[in-house]
């Protein structure tokens, strides 16, 4: 487990998500409407589609391919066709940078 620098806070709009690749892994990093930051695995558990192309609404991320939804703060699967929860990772703001613990 190690904190990894992702990007500047302003690189993610409020209520939005970006893709973050690290080594051979891919993550989705979120910024909520309140400005809090979160991180999950980057691929949908249904069909391995990058969630960063999806829509962030309140606490949910909607997959851009099949409209399955997760709570990106808890990882819970909320709407078919996703059935399997998304893995989440600790995220924090350090200075003006976002870091995630992977």
């Amino acid at each position: 487990m190690a904190w990894v620098d992702v990007c500047a806070v302003d690189d993610i709009e409020e209520e939005d998500v970006i893709r973050f690749d690290h080594g051979e892994r891919t993550f989705a990093v979120y910024r909520s409407l309140e400005g809090d930051v979160f991180a999950t695995d980057g691929l949908c558990t249904h069909e391995q589609v990058h969630l960063a192309g999806g829509l962030v609404m309140d606490e949910t991320i909607e997959c851009p391919k099949h409209n399955g939804r997760f709570n990106y703060q808890t990882g819970a699967a909320l709407r078919a066709p996703v059935c399997e929860a998304l893995r989440t990772y600790p995220a924090r703001v350090s200075g003006d940078r976002i870091e995630i613990d992977i």
């Binding site: 249904h46 069909e47 391919k65 099949h66 078919a80 066709p81």
Partner: peptide, 10 residues
């Protein structure tokens, strides 16, 4: 049909 249509999009 929800699952059928998901496959149609995949």
């Amino acid at each position: 049909w929800r699952w059928s249509h998901a496959r149609h999009h995949t």
